[in-house]
Amino acid sequence: MEQKKQTYQPRTLETQLPFSWKRLFFQWEWMLLLILVAVLLFGSYVSPYFLNYPSLRDGTMVFLDKALIVFPMAMIMIMRDIDISVGSTVALSSVVMASLYTTAGLPMEIAIVACLVTGAVCGLINGLLIVKFKELSAVIVTLGTMILYRGIAYIILEDQAAGGFPEWFGFFGWGYVFGIPFLLIVFAALAIVFGILLHRTTFGRKVFAIGNNPTASRFSGVRVDRIKVIVFMLAGLLAAITAIFLTSRMGSTRPNIATMYELDIIAMAALGGVSTAGGKGRVVGVVIAVFIIGYLQYGLGLINMPSQLFLIIVGALLILSVAIPKIGSLMKRK
């Protein structure tokens, strides 16, 4: 029998990857950029008023308010959970703020703080329920709180509208800083903050760990439950911030605002490459997806297209976005 000659050699591990074009370009974000360009071209084709700076700039005000929630939603989906109560949280926070200002006569500043607290508490409740009742899925828990929060909003305002906010409050929805919509600046800032949080901090690393393997994470000393509660609270807080921008833009509020927001937000995150199976996703992709869906909606709105068409296109895009990686791996197998 022949035996291989073995010399003892301590093994070393490389810490630098060689540069590879494939790695650089074989990424979902490039695909998303192409889709975004296609959407912009489509917009300029259907409407002469679409493709210019003021139009694209002001168009963001239509969709960026709800897009603020997409960042914590991406984190939640990375952890294999979901939160469908965010639309209701927006409504409840907004209604609490409006009624504290109008009915209770408190100063607007305090009403805004109350709005933020309400959102955070809503998220906290979601998070606690999900970690305490592990046999319930996040869909069921947040379906429950979605109905609950909306119901409370209706009790507070009784299907009335509340408005008449101070003039400075309109700044959130309509204000510009150096010629850029305030909302766009806030969105950009949050994109950077969440990008850092998710990709450059231990907190983000743990979020991905939980999404990939919750048991192994716990066994490695990751405080899984605590992190989940924090992220759900962030979702509630961001929903409250959205409530401020949305209420400001509309000038008044009703208990039925922000219905179906959760679906748009989940669609944005999924299209942006956040895996519904958990563990994968990048803020860059999510940001591009926000603009794809947003500008599509805006462009179709400019030419008075029925909103059903928008839904059909978003649906198709979503299915495409989950199908394309699958097709790739199917072909690899053959």
């Binding site: 591990l13 450059r200 901090t201 231990t202 907190f203 690393r205 743990k206 760990a209 990939n212 393997n213 192994a216 994470s217 066994f219 490695s220 000393g221 990751v222 563990g279």
Partner: peptide, 26 residues
């Protein structure tokens, strides 16, 4: 024990992230 879809690097450091960071910055 392991996050099998992850690299060796991220698995090795998962239990010790706090030592490798300042104010959660990794």
């Amino acid at each position: 024990g392991l996050v099998v879809d992850w690299s060796i690097e991220k698995n090795v450091t998962l239990a010790n992230l706090s030592e490798l960071s300042t104010y959660t910055w990794l």
